[in-house]
Structures are given as structure tokens and as C-alpha cells.
Design a protein around this nucleic acid. Sequence first.
DNA 1: TATTGTTATACTCTATAACTATA
DNA 2: TATAGTTATAGAGTATAACAATA
Lengths: 154, 154
Amino acid sequence: MDERLTGTVAAFRQIIATLRREKMAGGLSRAAGMPLDQPDVQVLVYLLDAGEPRRVGAIADGLQVAGPHVTRHVSALEGRGLLERVRDPEDGRAWQITLTSEGDKVAQQCVELTTAWFGAAMADWPEEDRDELLRLLTKLNTDVTEHIQRQRVN
Amino acid sequence: MDERLTGTVAAFRQIIATLRREKMAGGLSRAAGMPLDQPDVQVLVYLLDAGEPRRVGAIADGLQVAGPHVTRHVSALEGRGLLERVRDPEDGRAWQITLTSEGDKVAQQCVELTTAWFGAAMADWPEEDRDELLRLLTKLNTDVTEHIQRQRVN
DNA sequence: TATTGTTATACTCTATAACTATA
DNA sequence: TATAGTTATAGAGTATAACAATA
């Protein structure tokens, strides 16, 4: 068995545990001046990254969660004026979820704060290591996703 | 703002989402021939890594969860014969939690299966990249933990 | 009086099932 | 009849508060 892999998995697991416990959403709520839980933030940031309106189903796929979960948070965020539901002109069953300008602002704050947080944590990282981490995590993401899909087929 | 960091955070978040959805514990249960939820596995693997009996409080610290959470899973695992509670000879309030030989076996299976899973996902990774991922995640783990502690002080 | 662990309770995140409206 | 989304309900994981026993 590859000792390196065991160590890598352990490190990964611990980072996840640490970040979970940190409850970043509390800080984001304070910065945004309104209550935002973690799935709220994920929906907002997903839409910001997308750069254009997206369906409820697309958000669920992107975040890898079930549809009803997205529905609930979209409804809450709509109620707070951070996004809007617009009927999809090409499919009367679907909605296009759109960030309002307020929602766009809040989403950007979330990204900036999170990035700044990691930036501070990694303040003394050399350029090469930053490049490498991005490259390797991106690759890991691809390979893990592919591996799961391969397994599904079998 | 560092674009690399934004990408790194995004990749990290997506890997977490993918792994969460994969519900590894189901496969581990099947392999072990008994129901094991995710916190069960974490407790077992923590004790295996420790290599010797540990207190409930130490397990909670190590997994970064609250005490009562550990108590519940320790009780369940004890009921299934995977571990034992032995009074700490030096402190009558505390328990030393010990893996039974059965528990040790199951914990090893969990580690092996998880490692094998990642090994398959990363099958075509060159040696250097494996080394680098281990090095960078270990470093990230250290730096994130330190950053949180620095913030706590302020 | 402080600490270890437990019991009881509640909260957050997410899933599944049943339903509705449209295709 | 299939699909997009919603409503209602349930489950997993974890936290907080109140307590017991020992230090």
C-alpha cells in the first residue's frame, strides 16, 4: 500500500474537518450584513461563477446536491432580494435564476473574503507552490470525478 | 486578488462535494460486513492511527468534533464489539478507548479501501506529482490550522 | 471548584417521495 | 409519459446545555 496516499488522504480529511469547524459562513454573514448559511453562499457563488442565469436543476448539478435542497435556498435568497426567478422563455416548467445587483455584490464579497482568508493562511507560500497546488487539486478533481463515473458504469 | 487562489479554493470545494456525495461509508460497511457510518469509521481510523488507547476527549480533539458526538459513536462501536472502554488507571473520571482485534481489523480495512479508492482514481499520476500533493496538502493543513489559531488569539 | 464524560435536546445540511404544471 | 420544479418529510452529522462522578 502506498504510504504517501494514506498520508495524503489523512491530510485532506483533516483540512476538511478544520474548515468545517471554522464555520466560515458566520464571518460572511457579518460582512454581508445579513444571515447567510453555507448553502446560501454556495448558490450565490455558483451563480457568480456561471456569469449568467441558471436553472434550478443546473445549480443542483453544479453543487452536486438534490433539487429540493436548491429550491429551498433559492426561495430564501429570493425573499431577501439577492436573486430573482424568471420563467425560462423556452420551457415553461423551468426558471432562470438570476443574481440581483445586491446578490452579485454579496456573492463577490463571499469569494473575496474566502480567497483573502486562504491568502492569509498561505501568506508565505512561494509562487511555485501556489501554482503546483492549483494544478494538482484541479487534476485531482478531474480524476476523482472520472473515477466515480467509471465506477457507476460498472 | 490572486486568481490562482480562487481556482484552488473552487477545486477544493468541488472535491469535497464530490466525495461527500460518494458516501464512501456504504462501501466500507459492505466490506466490513456490518453497518458503519462515517463518524464510526473516523473514530476507528483515529484509534488505529494513534496505535494505542485514547481518551474520549483526545478522540474529540483529534477529529475536531464535540465530546458528546464521540461518546455516542464509542458506545455504538463498543456495543458491536469493535472497541472497549477501560477505566484510565490514572484518572477515575476518564476512559481509555481500546480497539478490539475485530475493531483493529475493520479499521485497517477502512484505511485500505479508502487508499485503494484514491489509488485507482490517481492510477496514472507520476511519482513526482504524488510526492508534491502529499507535501502541499500537509503544508496546507499546517498553515490553515495555524492561521485559525492566530485568529483566535486576536 | 475544575474537569471527564454522559444524557438530553436541538440545529444544519442534505436526501427521498409524492405532487404540480408544463412538455 | 417524461421532465422541471416544489412541498413535505426524514435522515445523517454535529453542537450546546445540563448533569454526574471524580479530581
